[in-house]
Each structure stands twice: as structure tokens, then as C-alpha cells.
Lab assay of single mutants.
Amino acid sequence: MEVRTIKVFTTVDNINLHTQVVDMSMTYGQQFGPTYLDGADVTKIKPHNSHEGKTFYVLPNDDTLRVEAFEYYHTTDPSFLGRYMSALNHTKKWKYPQVNGLTSIKWADNNCYLATALLTLQQIELKFNPPALQDAYYRARAGEAANFCALILAYCNKTVGELGDVRETMSYLFQHANLDSCKRVLNVVCKTCGQQQTTLKGVEAVMYMGTLSYEQFKKGVQIPCTCGKQATKYLVQQESPFVMMSAPPAQYELKHGTFTCASEYTGNYQCGHYKHITSKETLYCIDGALLTKSSEYKGPITDVFYKENSYTTTIK
């Protein structure tokens, strides 16, 4: 009895394709271990004539594949690729409408935090270190965002349907971005203890939790000093293409032309909904596939993004 075979390709990165001759009487799992086709788990399936010449994702289970996976995804987590594939199996079914010149995501599976993050990423200057993220990001900007969303979920250790947080998501993504040249110098002034300067680099240099107003941050924000008295913390120097200011959701007025974009969060910790506000020729609110415009805006804002380049204080 002759062994019926077909020729397929296996890959971990969709760049390096490895030619395989597979036995049609055995499952993919018996031949390769966990195997995925377009995100779908085909591990328990036997090869079919229609699979001839198709590319299958496999887990990096030998040295060659491990090197290829690390170079593309910059992670050695053995569960990463499987999590990416199972997320992709959902995100490829989502709709990605162009809204006001940006790629958004039609609401499904509690994905409003991903839509808000995706919209924000198209408006701030950011370059990702893992080629996987950078490639998928370019495709997302062009309207094909399924891979990018699935990668975000995998890097953030999230599953489809789980509630997510924009600030946490951005923080994970910033860790995989090139923020080497970003720098922030802060000064804390206390009447009792004097003053202390701190220099922050990388992710810490672009994120701040405690106030939404970048102007206020430049002037000074009140913080408790270690001595128990009130101290003032203010920005001395900022070198970065953008800054992200966050605070627990509270009524906040966004003035046209003073910011790049913002995240609105309605609801409580267990259950809520994100919308995205962007400042173009007027203010726009993007909620999944829905767009509304207004000249002014007041609502429960939790993150505001500002364009920056270089700032030095005039406070002496």
C-alpha cells in the first residue's frame, strides 16, 4: 500500500517557510505537534488534498525554529505562539472599519479597549522592536488589523473576551517599542525636605499616572512627601515624541487643539466601556464603527496623549 502524501510549508514567522512532505494517514499533531492554519487549530486533523502548498504555523520545537521565533517575536515564552494563534482565530472574524481616516474595530468580545489602543497607536510616533509587531502594525494602518490585535493580546497575556485596560495595554506595548531616546527629568520640591531631581528613561519617561493635564504637570502637581507634608512635583525636561497622561476616570474637559487623542471610560472596574476622542479640525468621538463630532467635550476621561518633541522648564 502506497503512502499518500502532500507537500506543505511549516513556519513560526510566515517569513521562513520549511518544506514538509506530510503523510495523509496521520494527523498534523502526530507529525508536527500543535499546528495552526489561519489561526485555526488543526492539530487533530489529517492532511487533505486542499492543504497542498498551504502554510501551517507550528510551535518552535527545534533550534532553527526557536531562533526564527525569537528573532521575529522577541520572546522565548513557549506558550506565546499558541496564544497568538488562538487569538487570531477570533480577531480574523472582527470587522476593521476605516473611521475618520483611522483603522478602528467594530465592537465584539469586549474589544473596546483594543480599538482605543489601536486608534491611539496610529496617532503617536512609535516604532516597535519585534519585527512581528512592526509588520502587523503597518498592515493594521492599511486596514488589516487582525494579526496586530492578536499579537497585542498575546504580548499582554490576554484572551479574547476578557476586559482590558488601555493604560495597561499601552504599557505592555511600550515595553516592546523603541523608547531608548526618551528621557524625563522631574523635580520634587518640599518646604521641609528641599528639592530632589529624578531622571527617568524609556517607558517611565512617557507615562504618568495622577493627572490628565500635561500643562498642569509642567506647572506642578501636589504629591505627598515622605515627611508627610505636601510637596510639588513638576516637569523639568521632556525628550520624547509623545507623552501619555493618565488618571482614574473623572469628568474632564478636553479643549480642541490642546491634545492629540484621549480615552474615555464609562462604567466601573468590573464592567465598563471605552471610547476614543481625537482632536482634528474639530473633536471626534470614535466608538467602534461609530463616529460623532463636537466642538467641545466633557466626560469621564482616563488617558490623554500629547505630541511632544523637546521641553525644558522655565521655572527657576
Rank of each mutant, 00 (worst) to 15 (best):
V12M: 11
T19N: 10
Q20F: 07
T27M: 13
F32E: 05
P34G: 08
Y36C: 06
D38H: 11
G39E: 12
G39W: 07
H48E: 14
H48D: 12
N49S: 13
N49K: 14
H51F: 06
K54P: 04
F56I: 09
D63M: 10
R66W: 08
E71Q: 11
E71A: 14
D77P: 05
P78N: 13
S79C: 08
F80M: 04
F80A: 04
Y84W: 02
M85P: 03
W94M: 03
K95M: 12
N100M: 09
N100T: 09
L102V: 07
T103R: 06
I105P: 02
K106G: 15
A108P: 05
L114Q: 04
T116E: 03
L119C: 12
E125Y: 06
N129E: 15
N129H: 13
P130E: 07
P130F: 03
P131C: 05
A132V: 03
Y137M: 15
Y138K: 14
Y138S: 12
R139H: 11
A142N: 14
N147V: 10
F148S: 02
C149W: 05
C156Q: 09
L163G: 13
D165C: 15
E168C: 07
Y172T: 12
H176C: 07
H176D: 00
L179P: 04
S181M: 14
S181D: 14
S181E: 15
S181C: 13
S181T: 11
R184I: 03
Q195C: 09
Q195H: 13
T199P: 02
G202F: 02
M207R: 07
E215S: 08
F217K: 02
K219A: 14
G220P: 11
V221N: 04
Q230W: 13
A231F: 01
S240E: 00
V243K: 00
M245G: 00
P249C: 02
A250Q: 15
E253Y: 10
G257R: 06
T258F: 07
F259N: 04
T260S: 07
S263K: 00
S263G: 01
E264A: 11
Y265M: 00
T266Q: 11
G267T: 11
N268P: 09
Y269H: 15
Q270N: 15
G272H: 00
H276I: 04
K280A: 13
D287M: 00
G288A: 04
K293P: 12
E296W: 13
Y297N: 03
D303T: 03
F305P: 01
F305A: 00
K307L: 12
E308P: 13
N309F: 11
Y311Q: 15
T312Y: 11
